[in-house]
Amino acid sequence: MEGLIELTPGMTLADADDIKFRVEDALLRDPHISDAALGILEDDGVKNWK
């Protein structure tokens, strides 16, 4: 599974890393997911999700 986490403006990279690790851990608890790779992006102000 691959995904991206977009930073909230003003969020530190350390906080974003903590969130990324918590999300990866939660995903890997699902028996249907064997691997998870998440990236972190800065907020670009464009909403491209619903």
Rank of each mutant, 00 (worst) to 15 (best):
E2C: 09
E2Q: 14
E2W: 09
G3I: 07
I5V: 09
E6L: 09
E6Y: 10
E6C: 11
L7G: 02
T8W: 00
T8N: 07
P9A: 09
G10A: 10
G10T: 09
G10N: 10
G10V: 02
M11Y: 03
A14H: 05
D15L: 00
D15V: 00
A16R: 09
A16T: 11
D17H: 15
D17K: 15
D18W: 00
D18I: 07
I19C: 04
K20N: 08
K20C: 12
F21I: 04
F21V: 04
F21N: 08
R22K: 15
V23P: 04
V23E: 02
V23S: 05
E24V: 15
A26M: 06
L27R: 01
L28P: 03
L28Q: 01
R29P: 02
R29N: 12
R29M: 14
D30Y: 05
D30K: 10
D30V: 10
H32C: 06
H32A: 14
H32W: 07
I33G: 01
I33W: 02
S34M: 07
D35R: 14
D35C: 06
D35H: 08
A36P: 04
A36Y: 01
A37Q: 09
L38M: 08
L38V: 13
L38E: 04
L38F: 06
I40L: 14
D43T: 01
D44Y: 01
V46Y: 06
V46N: 09
K47I: 12
K47N: 06
N48R: 15
N48K: 13
N48S: 14
N48H: 14
K50W: 13
